[in-house]
Structure formats: structure tokens, C-alpha cells
Design a protein around this nucleic acid. Structure first.
Lengths: 208, 208
DNA sequence: GACTATTTTAAACACCTGTTTGAATTTTAT
DNA sequence: ATAAAATTCAAACAGGTGTTTAAAATAGTC
């Protein structure tokens, strides 16, 4: 395995666990069993390494997501919100083929990126993968046309918050659930639990 | 104004903006116009300073919240979920009397504490203010008795995620909303927007 | 096999971190 | 006014950060 990939793998799991700011290059290179200078040699800087870790997943996820959401947008009958959100499941689970625990790691990274380093990830997603976002907005609009653009904006960000936050602390939550209810859930099952919640939230009746 | 309070005020706004890990003692003491060593003299350590910043708000919030939730738990008729969640509004807005922007700062701090420093805040809340949490659970149970304990656990954490995450990035979201929709929302109005969403999420029908 | 080009390595760089020290100062109480 | 206690201060501490350097080792090519 190449040095570059050893670094990416080590960085990914450490970033997911301790956040971007909370992980030092020395921890990464130590876990990857690689010289400290290798990061700057292969990636240029820590910031570029973070981007590379995210891109490895986004480049797999984006096309799958675009395809699934396009299908919904182009179908004749009106989709339900649950249907729109369920479109995320298969593409997300496909990340497990990039790497073991890929889905879980990616979702945790998403959470880290949103709260670490003030909005870097918001910039990353909106500028690097705008078509996925607009397809998603279109799909939701098709499922719930009465929702105003402004209300949609807020509810989509609430949804982002729910998912991202849940996933960034999913390890801790799964531990607690195991202790309290004796149930060992997979990341797929957590996703199954969150979908009815966010579908109901986005679909909530409009108040005045 | 005492040195102690100057430090608390400076720390609070910097913590809210850049997170706990992302704020150095030198930034805090510089903003507070106070000697660097004053933090360790008055608070002992950075960790204790963080606790002090959080406690200043929690000690105001907890009794108000307990009172409001107790009322709901003890009333005869069955409350709606919206009613339960609305009980948070007044206590939260009361934090604006502790300090200007108190509500907003506190909610952002909550978000920071959850994602920074792996679960420190979860420990802080569950051990220091357990009665508030159990009252809230009781109130939700009264409003939606069909919900199993396990499903409730997940939905409450989803809700925590929605609120905490939204608030931790509320400044950015309010900026975007101002640009895109020309509307200048207050923190109270954002809370008003999030309540229907989380009420619908928690109240979503139980799937199999 | 010699000669590039690529990669790895140990060491140092400049800077930032939270914390501690001991002397100078201010405040408080007698 | 004087002694004691509390606070402020500049300076240094030990350790960590991302990044750079220049020499050593390896790989690829003629």
C-alpha cells in the first residue's frame, strides 16, 4: 500500500474520532507508520490533506446521489419525502466499499467539518458539489410544493444538523443504546431511524 | 467590573465563535484586557473556566426550565409536543438578561461543547443537571405515550442535534437568510422556526 | 551499471499552547 | 500608618503545532 493511501486511511479514522483540529500530523504519520514530512511532501499541507480525505468519499458519493435524485425528479408521480430521503441510503452505504466503516467514517467527518473550522465544509459542499444540492432541493420541492423557498432553506439546514450531528456522535449514541436497551445497531439501522424523523420535520405543516 | 467577569465575558463570546479548542487563553486575556496569568489565578485552569462559563447560564436556565416542565408534567390534560417544546422558549430568552446576546451565545456554546472535546458536555449536562433531563423525558412521554423508551432515546438525541447544530451555526445561517430572502431574523424567530420541525420529528408515526 | 528522478528520513525551524513562578503592586483590616 | 492578604504582572517553562531543509535511500530509465 502506498504511503499516500496509508496517510489517507490513518487521517480519516483519526479525523473522524477527534476532529480536524484535534488531530495532529504527528498522530497521523505515527498511526500510518510513515515519516512526518510525508504529509507535506504528498499533500502540501494539512488543509489539503483534509480536502483529499473528504474528496475520496465525495467523488464516489456525488455521482450515485445525483443519479438517485435525478430519477426522483424525472419520474411522473409525486414522490413522498420519505422516498426522497431514502434515496440517500444506497449511495451512503456504497461508501462501505471504499473502505471498511466508510459510511460511518464519512458521516462523522461531515459532522466534524461542519463544526470544526467554521463553515469550511459548507463552502466545500456548496462550491465543489452544487449539483447534488440543487437536485436535492428540487426533489424536496416536488414532494412538498407548498413549502416556500425560505421555509425550505431552514428545514434543510435543520435536517443537515440532525443528520450530521447524530452521525458525529453516533459512536457514543450506539454505545449508550447498547448499554440501555441491549441492542447493537449498525450505521444503516441508525439511518433507518433518522429518516422518519427528518421526513416528518421537513414535512411539518406550515405555521404562521 | 471585576477581572473575573471580564474574563468570563471575553471567554464566552470567543468560545461561542471559535469553539473551546479554537480559543487560546492569550486571545481571551487580550480581549478582556487582563494579564494572561489571571485565568489560572481566578479559575485554576482552562477547563474550569469553560465550566464556569457554562454554569453562569445553566444556573439561570435550569430552575426556569424545571419549573416550566414541572407545570406540564403536573397538569391534568395531555400536552401536545409543541407545548412541551415551547416550554423552552421563555427560559432560553431569559438568558438575554444575564448578558446581551445571552440566549444566542449559550446555544452556540452548547453546540461547541457537544462537538468539541468528545462528549464533555454530555457528561456535564447529565451529571450536573439530571433533573431537567428527566423532567423533559417525562413531559414528552406524557405527550406521546405510545413512543417506546428506545425510540424516544433516539428522537431526543436527534432533537438535541437539530437544535444544537442549528444554533452553533446560527450566525452563518442568519447571514445567508438575510442575503437570500432579505429577512433579518432574531434568535427568538429561529427558535420559532425550529419548534414545528422538531415537534413533527419527535411526533413522527412509529415505523417497523 | 551509471545516471536521473522520486521518495524517505532525521533534524531543525519558528511559533503557539496552558501553566507556573516570584516579585511588584494594590486592597483590606487592624 | 502598618501589617497582612489578595491581586496583578512580566517572564519563563516545558511541550506541542505545522512546515521546511538538506542529506540519505530507493526506484526507474537509458
Amino acid at each position: 500500500m502506498s504511503t499516500k493511501n496509508k496517510i489517507l486511511d490513518a487521517a480519516e479514522s483519526l479525523f473522524a474520532e477527534h476532529g480536524f483540529n484535534g488531530t495532529s500530523l504527528r498522530e497521523i504519520t505515527s498511526k500510518a507508520e510513515v515519516n512526518l514530512a510525508a504529509v507535506n511532501y504528498h499533500f502540501g499541507s494539512k488543509k489539503e490533506l483534509i480536502k483529499a480525505v473528504m474528496s475520496r468519499y465525495m467523488n464516489v458519493l456525488a455521482p450515485l446521489l445525483e443519479a438517485a435524485l435525478s430519477d426522483i425528479c424525472e419520474q411522473e408521480n409525486k414522490p413522498s419525502l420519505t422516498e426522497v430521503l431514502t434515496a440517500f441510503i444506497e449511495p451512503l452505504l456504497a461508501l462501505n466499499e471504499v473502505k471498511e466503516n466508510g459510511t460511518s467514517n464519512f458521516l462523522q467527518l461531515l459532522g466534524r467539518g461542519y463544526t470544526d473550522s467554521q463553515g469550511f465544509l459548507r463552502w466545500f459542499l456548496t462550491t465543489q458539489y452544487p449539483s447534488v444540492i440543487s437536485l436535492f432541493v428540487n426533489a424536496v420541492q416536488k414532494a412538498y410544493p407548498e413549502l416556500t423557498a425560505e421555509e425550505m432553506f431552514w428545514r434543510l439546514h435543520f435536517t443537515m444538523g440532525t443528520v450530521v450531528f447524530t452521525m458525529s456522535s453516533s459512536d457514543a449514541l450506539m454505545d449508550i443504546a447498547k448499554n440501555d436497551f441491549d441492542k447493537d445497531l449498525s450505521i444503516a439501522e441508525v439511518i433507518q431511524k433518522v429518516i422518519p424523523y427528518v421526513a416528518a420535520g421537513v414535512g411539518a405543516p406550515i405555521s404562521d
